[in-house]
Design a protein around this nucleic acid. Structure first.
Lengths: 209, 209
DNA sequence: CGGTCTACTGTACCGACGGTACAGTGACCC
DNA sequence: GGGTCACTGTACCGTCGGTACAGTAGACCG
């Protein structure tokens, strides 16, 4: 570590991960070079390969860190929603509203989804990367499916629906809306799609309009 | 053209486009090398750069060809739906059913969406590529928005919705479901999400039930 | 005080790949 | 027979991912 430790709390490895995550989300994986990252962090190539055996291992580490943070963030949103009501449906709708508001509050179009970015470049990543992405989506499915099952027991749905597909629908809408908002450059696309999902859920499970 | 024209109808350029489209959808853009493509088609590097000034120009050409074919395919689906009914809602629902059935009939998971693949690698492509993708999504929006407006006039929606967002929702679901199905390796994900969209639209605009 | 471990530096090098330059050539077209 | 089209063939360049490995400054440890 040259001569002075810059910040003892934030390791070089962490700074690499942060720089790489930002660069990959904004420019794409292929357009993010190792040389550029080490220049930003201030280390040499040898230092990079001391921490990560190759570029794909870097993505593995980013995904692992990111998925943990995402889980905690979702927990936080659900906890906030739980303070608003005890009814499962009202609580879930509150969660969706809070999620939508957070997406509305973003200054720019959402920078993108790491999972979506990896899924379109199959051969560039190790199996570990794809497995992490898979586990993440299955965790979302499970989380929302549990909530929806609880809701459907108390409020029989107006139309017959596959609750697992309905659980998937939220993450599908989020990923799809990120593509839409990035492509047409409309940051409102993401909160609007979440709003439609709220409408769908409310329409399905609410009794009196 | 070496000595014998292999197939006078299909030009070398077309064969390059086809080979590249397949390779990019299945392996990703960065993992598809020019050398591999020319080996498959049986030309030299000079021949490649005679047709395309760089790799990004290849993607432009693929997108242009693909988007034209997609438009024609959608027209075909709508035409088939139109034979089933004269009512706008019933016709739109028939279109969605046909679309879902086509996606169900695919042998494997959908190979992917070129637009989604380009949007996560901003710096790798020219502005032309991004503009083509943008125009395509806006065309889908316009097409479906017109149908939905017509439907909403005849069938006042049960809940208040943004019809433009509802139009976007279909393409958002398709792109998102492709990500989901590729990542968790479940080919049913795409038709299931289209099925949910059918449920949503039917629930919004149908009187009875 | 000496030894070991961690976290690098520095240098040199390799192969793959995108891309350039340009001269030549066979087939067809007016 | 002259020109254009659609290439071939060869040589070369810069960038980038990745390898190899020797050296070293500082921390921690007995």
């Amino acid at each position: 570590m040259s001569f002075i430790k810059p910040r003892s709390t934030e390791t070089t490895r962490d700074r690499l991960l942060t720089a790489a995550e930002m660069a990959i989300l904004h420019k794409g994986y292929a357009a993010t070079s190792i040389e550029e990252l080490i220049a930003e962090v201030g280390i040499t190539k040898g230092g990079f390969f001391y921490h990560f055996k190759d570029k794909s291992a870097l993505v593995e580490a980013i995904l692992e860190r990111h998925l943990g943070a995402e889980e905690a963030w979702l927990d936080g949103l659900f906890a906030r929603a739980a303070t608003e009501s005890d009814d499962p449906l009202a609580e879930f709708l509150a969660f969706l509203r809070i999620l939508r508001e957070q997406m509305e509050a973003l200054p720019d179009v959402h920078p993108g989804c790491l999972i979506a970015a990896t899924c379109f470049q199959e051969r560039l990543f190790t199996q570990v990367v794809h497995d992490l992405a898979r586990q993440n989506l299955l965790a979302w499915r499970q989380r929302f499916h549990a909530r929806l099952t609880e809701i459907a027991e108390a409020n029989p749905p107006r139309q017959q629906v596959d609750l697992e597909a309905l659980a998937d629908m939220l993450v599908v809408l989020v990923d799809g809306a990120i593509i839409l908002s990035k492509t047409v450059r409309e940051k409102e696309a993401l909160p609007r799609q979440i709003g439609l999902y709220e409408t769908f859920v409310r329409g399905l499970f609410s009794e009196g309009e």
